[in-house]
């Protein structure tokens, strides 16, 4: 299987790279302290706009760690990131007293938004299913589709998705969590769409030329993998997609 990174890969290389992290209120961008301000601004400007497309009511925060932020940096970020890209910034986080002081003086929120209730947050899944007649159920953060999904149909969900049928060619699932397709996986799936790497894709029959996990893109075909048309589990291990055919021993001894 060939493995290629998607356009977000530069955010995820080890070292001084901005790292997005999924939170209950949207995305948190963790900014390495080792980056210079110019590198930081350049990386922020290079983030694809679709990364910021969040469900209604959600936003982003920036965590600068111990960095001492300058007025110039804040002004540049507001000018070229916030106003230019229309991003809703919910918090400017820092452990540096000078930075906190600067943010507060500008009227910026320096704490993360509070969770609305004390119970574990289960955000309302963003459900987009175009032209679909598929019967859907929502089980505690898990979205279940009880029919096959046809070409052109798509689902977007914050949590996990289970398709109790086939995912036909041309159908798409984008999930913040993991994806399980009980039947034939012929369409496109993206698990961990908001950056989570502790996700998996499970397919009853692996027949898709492309799988996306977090910010990794995997290509496959009949020649490159022995798992073609077999049940598989695909996970990320040390940021590398690993595909495993499921072969269970029954325990019977000959």
């Amino acid at each position: 299987m060939n493995i290629l990174n998607n356009p977000l890969r530069k955010l995820r290389r080890p070292g001084a790279q901005i790292k997005p992290e999924r939170t209950y209120y949207g995305l948190k961008f963790i900014v390495p302290e080792t980056l210079t301000e110019d590198e930081l601004l350049k990386q922020l400007a290079g983030i694809p706009p679709n990364v910021y497309k969040l469900p209604e009511g959600e936003g982003v925060s920036f965590d600068f760690g111990g960095r001492e932020c300058s007025r110039r940096l804040i002004l540049h970020m507001i000018n070229s990131i916030v106003w230019e890209k229309g991003i809703k910034i919910l918090a400017w986080l820092s452990v540096n007293p000078e930075s906190i002081k600067l943010f507060a003086a500008a009227g910026l929120s320096v704490t993360e938004p509070e969770q609305e209730s004390e119970s574990p947050h289960t955000p309302e899944p963003e459900q987009v299913m175009t032209e679909s007649v598929a019967e859907r159920r929502h089980i505690a953060g898990l979205k279940v589709v009880y029919t096959s999904m046809r070409s052109g149909q798509s689902i977007e969900a914050d949590g996990d998705v289970l398709v109790w049928g086939h995912l036909n060619p041309g159908a798409e699932i984008k999930a913040g969590g993991s994806i399980l397709v009980a039947g034939r996986l012929l369409g496109v799936v993206q698990a961990g769409a908001y950056g989570r790497e502790d996700v998996f894709v499970w397919a009853g029959s692996f027949e898709t030329p492309q799988v996306r996990l977090a910010n990794k893109l995997c290509y496959a075909d009949q020649k490159s993998t022995t798992c073609w048309r077999k049940g598989v589990l695909i996970t990320l291990e040390e940021s590398t997609p690993v595909i495993r055919e499921y072969k269970f021993l029954s325990g019977d001894k000959k």
């Binding site: 679909s132 007649v133 070409s151 052109g152 036909n168 060619p169």
Partner: peptide
């Protein structure tokens, strides 16, 4: 076949 699948869904 893929286009037919799309149409059937619609």
């Amino acid at each position: 076949v893929r286009d037919a699948d799309r149409i059937i869904g619609m």
